[in-house]
Design a protein around this nucleic acid. Structure first.
Lengths: 208, 208, 208, 208
DNA sequence: GATGAATGAGCTTTCATTCAT
DNA sequence: AATGAATGAAAGCTCATTCAT
């Protein structure tokens, strides 16, 4: 399964979903302001609108909140990213669109993505595996598009090159968030997107 | 000045240097294993070979240790990187060498770089500024090489493109550390380096 | 308001009152034995019958305990003092009674008053203001009785003399506690009271 | 003996005297600003112009500094007070002069006296005894003047009344320092002195 | 299911004192 | 005699977690 099972004391699944959404929303805001370690469980509970006792009816440990946050952010990124993709675009245009969509989503969810990036190391090994797997599956999605393009004879690249390009594209998305302190000084979102797209397109090899 | 002044109770500057080196060495190891927040000042002192009281003779707060660690890591990266560069290489070869050197250094110091990347957010605003400035100055160094190449007519690129390429090169270095969980699955250091170099060289524009 | 607001984590006001009473009672005893600075928060919590964590659910800092102690002692002094006064006594008798009551209360609460006198300098400036204001209001109460006596033509004294006499009376009360090491060698409570009353009565001027 | 023996590692008595004067001068200033408990031995040494190691060559513990400070302040008060007294004044004038001189000295040395009054409780039982004995001997000096006046038929008072009056006079001196927060609001030094003198003179009984 | 008072291990930091130089 | 680096016990305070109501 793609998601870790987080045990709850409460049985009602609908309530669990509702309460966890409240807590994630509150936690995202707090983690953004103060980071995971400086945020207390009491603060999360209060910001979520219930008591500390109730918080622990829906999770087992503070780390669970972080996991749920990361999971929820991944859902957000994945959903928006997928929505933006048009599978019917022709060849190279699909790659371009892929990059533009990714950067766009990363920009929209920059605060959330930053949390995930900076705090995920505080996760237990097990939770981290789940989070990394979701990242990997996204990279895999990008890679499969590249492979498809190759199959259609649009571009020429080895399996290894496809893998690296997928990683590079992912990183171009992420870096807009975690190097924003540097990038924002020089580029608007549009400039950044255009230039990165151009760079990738130039680097693509055309089959003879 | 490029470095933040960290006050000490002890006067002997040579001793301060020595003790801080001990403490940084111990801290790097501990931060690697457990992260900054989970490492206690007592552990750092003990691992450095002196008492908790002595630790606080050389710093003012736990955060100072993190700053010294980041600073020391930056020194390491900068030094090694600079040593590897050969200013006499012809045109495009210099860019290639730049990328190869950076990735090489990042690989050598991957554990340290990872600490800096993951924990620097725990720094105070003031300390963080210093750390980011050092990163910025390294990016700037790369950018100036690119501009030089342009001046010599080796490549064609706008100021903005130079800036972005510098950032991209830096990121290609960093990503070998912070995405190693994914990259190591598919690439050896040599493969990764070669492919990234090729990708960059392909994307460069030649002046007419 | 005459009292400083001391924030608590716990919401239940009745519980706050109860726990703070426990903690004040414990603290008074400990401060008596070892003074404020030598008493630890752990000792206070233990003597009060709860854990250190619980202590900090009801105060924000150790200084708050001292403030609550001073406040509680002032309450005790004020309450007992007020109870002892008979507003219907004729003229000079009221002044005599005032002095006797004050010394009597100071004797009853000598240990507590001594704490307040010796430790209040450890209070923050803000807390100290509150404590001094309560002292001032008591002095003012005495002064107003003196002025009343003057209005009724029982005694003759200027405004300034009334102010000083009020301060002198307060001090005659306090000194029975903070100079007890000297006074107890020579006087019983009764002797001290009688002699001080006589001295004051002799010093009063009768209107012509 | 009237003074406690404070052991030193150093033999040279003249040096001991000199160094202790330096340290007392520094300590008085620091205790005034931050109180005894908040002042560190390091600060005292530094302000005195020598190292922490040297400080401990001349005392055995931090408490010794406090004792030396109290002792020095008492010396100051005693010396100035004695200088001001004119043994040849006639009867009641001598008492008046006594009170005036005391208040005058207390005003001059108010900061020092306040330290002694507020911090002496931090002394060990043994040191405290010495400090209280010096206070007692001053009270005794006042008492003996009162008795002399009685012997000369200037005033009429019992032994017990003499004792109390001596204590009251001492307290009128002290209170100008420790209740200055209240007294300064209403009185100048001159007003305070005049009114207290008048009050005492009025309360004196004349022999028939 | 919800509450929130209670807990105590554990953290960072301070500072009087020592002792080798 | 003077120095100051080293020490470590001890202090104030925090906060994830539990559990009786």
């Amino acid at each position: 399964m793609v998601k870790r099972y987080v045990p709850a004391m409460v049985k009602d699944e609908i309530l669990i979903k509702k309460r966890r959404e409240q807590m994630v929303k509150a936690a995202v805001k707090l983690f953004q302001e103060k980071g995971f370690h400086r945020t207390t469980t009491r603060e999360i509970a209060k910001a979520a609108g219930f008591s500390i006792g109730t918080l622990y009816e829906y999770i087992e440990s503070k780390e669970d909140v972080l996991y749920l946050v990361c999971d929820s952010i991944h859902d957000g990124v994945k959903t928006r990213f997928t929505e933006m993709l048009d599978r019917n675009l022709p060849g190279r245009k699909r790659i371009e669109q892929l990059v533009r969509s990714l950067i766009h989503v990363m920009d929209e969810l920059q605060d959330e993505v930053l949390i995930m990036y900076q705090e995920s190391k505080a996760l237990s090994k097990e939770s981290l595996t789940y989070v990394l797997n979701r990242d990997r599956s996204m990279t895999e999605g990008i890679r499969s598009v590249l492979i498809e393009c190759r199959e259609h004879g649009e571009i020429e690249l080895s399996d290894l090159e496809a893998q690296l390009l997928a990683e590079n594209i992912m990183t171009k998305g992420y870096m807009w968030t975690f190097r924003r302190w540097a990038l924002r000084k020089h580029f608007t979102l549009e400039q950044y997107t255009d230039l990165q797209v151009e760079e990738i397109m130039r680097s693509l090899k055309t089959p003879k």
